[in-house]
C-alpha cells in the first residue's frame, strides 16, 4: 500500500481514484491472465486431485452414507437410519476397544516422542559413526511391519523366546508377554515405541538443525551447562517440531491395526484386552461382513481423531514457540 504522505494536497482521494481506475483496468486484465493461470494450475494438479477425489473423498462420503445403512451381502443394503449408532451404545466390546486404543495411545505416544527427542539430540552431536547410528535407528521404519512383528513374536515367545531365555538365566521366570492380559498391551506399546523412534528421530533432527547456533554460543558465554541449554534453548525451540510429531503420532496411534493383527491375532485369549478400534472395525467389516456397522465405527473414530486434533491446535498457542 503506497500510503506515502503527499505534500500540497489531499492525497487520499487521488490515490483512491487512481487505485480504483487502475484497478478496473487491471481487474479485467488480471482476470484473463488469472483465468489462464488457474486453468493451467488446475490442469497440472488434476491427476492428483482426481485421485484424491476418487480414492479418498468419495469413499469418505460413501462411508458416511453407509454408516446409516444396514448392510447385506454383495452390495445389497437398506436405509437403517440411526440403527448402527443405537447398536453402538450397547456394544461393550466396542467401548472396550476404544478404551484399549486410548491406553495404547497414552502409553506409546509420550514415550515414543520423549525417546525420539533424546536419541535425536544425542545423534545431533559430532561423534564417530554417527551415520551408522542414524541408520540403525531408522531401520525399523524401512522394515516390513509383518517382518518386525514376526521377530518380536519370537522374542516375546514365553517358552522359546529370547527375552524369557535371558530372564531365566538370571533366575527369573518371565511372563507370557503376548498372551497374559496384564502384559500384552505393554508388549505392544514397547514394539510401537521402538518402531516409531526412527521416523520421529529424523523429523527431530531436522528440527534441531534449524535452531540457530547463536543461542548456544551466547549461552556458553553466560556459562550455561548442557542441561540448562537443553531445557532452556533446545526444547522450547523444538516445540513446533514436537507439535507436528505429536499430531501425526496421535493420529497414527489411534489407527493402530497391523501390530495387533500380526502380533496378537483374532483368536488370541487376550484379543479383547488389546484390540483397537480399527481392529474392531476390521472385524465388523471383513469377518462379520457388516459394512454398515463398520462404517459407523469408522465415523466415530473420525470424530474422535478430529476432536483430539482440534484440541491440540487450540492448545498449541500455550506451549509452542515459533521463532
Amino acid at each position: 500500500m503506497s500510503g506515502l504522505p503527499m505534500r500540497g494536497g489531499p492525497p487520499k482521494p487521488f490515490v483512491d481514484q487512481e487505485v480504483r481506475g487502475k484497478g478496473v483496468d487491471d481487474v479485467s486484465g488480471i482476470n484473463k491472465k488469472k483465468l489462464q493461470d488457474w486453468f493451467w494450475a488446475y490442469l497440472m494438479i488434476f491427476p492428483t486431485l482426481a485421485g484424491t477425489i476418487i480414492f479418498s473423498i468419495w469413499p469418505l462420503l460413501q462411508s458416511f452414507y453407509l454408516s446409516f445403512t444396514e448392510w447385506g451381502a454383495f452390495g445389497f443394503y437398506e436405509w437403517g437410519g440411526t440403527v448402527n449408532f443405537e447398536r453402538m451404545l450397547g456394544d461393550s466390546v466396542l467401548w472396550q476397544s476404544l478404551r484399549n486404543t486410548l491406553v495404547f495411545t497414552v502409553g506409546s505416544v509420550p514415550f515414543g516422542i520423549a525417546l525420539s527427542i533424546i536419541v535425536a539430540v544425542l545423534l545431533n552431536t559430532k561423534i564417530r559413526g554417527m551415520s551408522t547410528y542414524r541408520t540403525l535407528y531408522f531401520l525399523p521404519v524401512v522394515t516390513m511391519p509383518v517382518a518386525v512383528a514376526m521377530v518380536w513374536r519370537w522374542l516375546y515367545n514365553a517358552d522359546f523366546g529370547l527375552i524369557n531365555h535371558i530372564l531365566r538365566s538370571v533366575g527369573i521366570t518371565g511372563p507370557r508377554w503376548l498372551t497374559d492380559p496384564k502384559y500384552a498391551m505393554l508388549s505392544l506399546i514397547v514394539v510401537s515405541v521402538w518402531s516409531s523412534i526412527g521416523y520421529n528421530m529424523v523429523i527431530f533432527l531436522s528440527g534441531l538443525q534449524g535452531i540457530s547456533k547463536q543461542y548456544y554460543e551466547s549461552a556458553d558465554i553466560d556459562g550455561a551447562n548442557a542441561f540448562v541449554k537443553f531445557f532452556r534453548i533446545t526444547l522450547p525451540l523444538l516445540t513446533p517440531t514436537i507439535f507436528f510429531v505429536t499430531v501425526t503420532s496421535l493420529i497414527s496411534s489411534f489407527q493402530v491395526f497391523e501390530l495387533i493383527f500380526t502380533m496378537i491375532g483374532i483368536n488370541s485369549p487376550v484379543i479383547r484386552h488389546t484390540q483397537s478400534i480399527v481392529f474392531y472395525f476390521y472385524r465388523q467389516a471383513f469377518v462379520n461382513m457388516d459394512k454398515g456397522y463398520a462404517a459407523a465405527i469408522s465415523l466415530v473414530l473420525f470424530v474422535v481423531i478430529l476432536g483430539v486434533t482440534i484440541v491440540q491446535f487450540r492448545l498449541q498457542k500455550r506451549w509452542v514457540h515459533y521463532e
Partner: peptide, 8 residues
C-alpha cells in the same frame, strides 16, 4: 494351556 498354544 490356551496361552501356550497361542504363543506357539
Amino acid at each position: 494351556s490356551m496361552a501356550q498354544m497361542t504363543d506357539t
